[in-house]
């Protein structure tokens, strides 16, 4: 009975292990980007993967790449893929790590099959199937690593881009930068309300100078934030509305209701001061251009 591909593949791997490993390492060192990994490094990883594959093939065969017998192989691939994703390799470069094994492996299979063309074709097909699955797995891990990276970065941005600053006794300001989506509005709202409780602020200024576009959804989010702050007993002023955005708001038919809006943060601040019973008076002395502040009890 002729050996099936799943049996011949491990045998070939066994017999010609060093030969395949040398050819594979060479293949990769030739195609590698300069300065990314040393030859010894590549050789070590190739050897690790190859021996893991040999064991997996011998114990369970080529069919079940997702099975427990292949876990060590997947482990090695996961590590390689993870490192490459972090080092900034492209997806194809990462997948090539596995796919470049094809040529050395096929050559070894051809040498072992001799003149039996049919057997060679079956062997090659079996090997291709295994390697393709492994390459797909590598690509998947690569994508997952990148996605995690992106998710973490956007989370960082979310936290960085929503500071609540205290401008004056009882006056808070929220300089918003970037697109306002639902999750950001939620964070903004929560941090604003929390700060209102902490500082006992009466007025909060939402500055949208850094918000690139305002559509109906963004306006909806703004209105929600203002309403929530009002329920907490704080008045909101929206400032930093650029001319184009003012036009967009009107064209979209967004009703901002009785929300106070100001063109600049300075105007909003002035209004906020007057609401808290503080008036800004410019000093008579021309040499001292800074204004002085007087607080009048309400």
């Amino acid at each position: 009975m002729p050996a099936t591909p799943s049996r011949r593949l491990p045998r070939v791997l066994d017999e010609r292990f060093d030969e395949i490993l040398a050819a594979w390492t060479k293949e990769q060192t030739n195609g590698a980007k300069p300065g990314t990994a040393s030859e010894g490094d590549i050789r070590a990883r190739c050897s690790e993967l190859l021996s893991a594959m040999r064991k997996a093939l011998a114990s369970s065969g080529a069919d079940d790449v997702q099975g427990p017998a292949w876990a060590p192989v997947r482990d090695v691939l996961q590590r390689v893929s993870f490192i490459r994703a972090q080092q900034g390799f492209t997806p194809s470069e990462t997948a090539t790590f596995v796919l470049s094994l094809k040529r050395p492996l096929f050559e070894a299979l051809r040498a072992s099959a001799g003149n039996d063309a049919e057997a060679l074709a079956t062997d090659v097909w079996g090997a291709t199937e295994v390697l393709d699955r492994l390459a797909l797995f590598t690509a998947e891990v690569y994508m997952k690593t990148r996605e995690e990276l992106i998710a973490r970065q956007s989370q960082d941005m979310l936290e960085l881009s929503t500071p609540v600053v205290k401008l004056w006794e009882g006056v808070l300001a929220l300089p918003m930068i970037g697109t306002l989506d639902s999750s950001r509005t939620q964070v903004v709202m929560e941090s604003l309300l929390q700060r209102i409780v902490e500082t006992g602020a009466d007025v909060a200024i939402l500055d949208i100078t850094g918000v690139p576009t305002v559509d109906t959804l963004t306006a909806q989010h703004l209105i929600k934030t203002v309403t929530a702050a009002r329920l907490m007993g704080a008045e909101c002023i929206i400032s930093g509305i650029r001319p184009q955005i003012a036009q967009t708001i009107v064209h979209l038919g967004v009703d901002l209701g009785d929300i106070v809006t100001k063109a600049t943060l300075a105007d909003a601040f002035k209004l906020a001061l007057s609401r808290t019973g503080t008036t800004l008076v410019r000093s008579r002395n021309g040499a001292n251009p800074t204004g002085s502040l007087t607080t009048t009890p309400r």
Binding site: Q186, M189, E190, L193, Q194, I196, V197, G200, D202, K224, T227, A228, A229, R230, L231, M232, G233, A234
Partner: peptide, 22 residues
Amino acid sequence: PAVAITLVELGLSLPGVRTALN
């Protein structure tokens, strides 16, 4: 704060009711 957010999400902005922090 959590109550305020819930009310806004429910669409209840309590028009005509005045509010204060304490």
